[in-house]
Design a protein around this nucleic acid. Sequence first.
DNA 1: ACTATATTTCCATAAATATGGAAATATAGC
DNA 2: GCTATATTTCCATATTTATGGAAATATAGT
Lengths: 111, 111
Amino acid sequence: MNSQQAVTLLFALAQEARLDIFRCLVQAGPAGLSAGVISQTLHIPNSTLSFHLKELSHAGMISAKQESRFIYYSANYQSMNALLTYLTDNCCAGQAACCPDMQCQPTKENE
Amino acid sequence: MNSQQAVTLLFALAQEARLDIFRCLVQAGPAGLSAGVISQTLHIPNSTLSFHLKELSHAGMISAKQESRFIYYSANYQSMNALLTYLTDNCCAGQAACCPDMQCQPTKENE
DNA sequence: ACTATATTTCCATAAATATGGAAATATAGC
DNA sequence: GCTATATTTCCATATTTATGGAAATATAGT
């Protein structure tokens, strides 16, 4: 994970519709949701939704899985964790005192 | 912290120059850096830097403190932690199993 | 092949962001 | 007040991003 990759992920989430979509998928769990369901849930027109899904997908924040006529989108937890790890790793230049309110302790390596 | 606030913070970081600036400040610590030093370090013209500093500042990711002729900018760790907390709080809808690689355990409330 | 449904692409347009030189505005020392 | 330095604002321009209707494409059941 470098600065550019982080920007890509941050940018993907830095838009109301996309953050809503992503959180929707996060809550839906690994099974994901079809584009149609997302469209109905968030009241986003198909073309607009498709645009944002592509953005999220291209950034690697979500994954798509075709199943019959439906395409199920699901959150890419790994990317999210990598982003958190990246931001956290560089937090306070390693001085824990700067981050009194949060202690992130990865249980596994996630490079 | 709501969706809009999160978008504001994410957007502030979702730009190469701004992410670089922010990380620069994070590593510099609470004392911060003057605009001139940042400009020289990252090779960003004054006007461009000023634009990005304003963006970061307006979003609440950094703080400014005038000291004689210099203005020292420093990272706002609280905002960063709040953002991480927000993203983490809603991760996997509370099911830890979705986030095997990261366990964020805030030691204090940070609402 | 035909039909129905799901999703994406096309396209034009609108809106927001980014850039950096030049001028303006602080601030402080003399 | 003058000068030097630090930083910001102004401004025009370039670039990117967002929007959604209509048409195109894909998939599956009959």
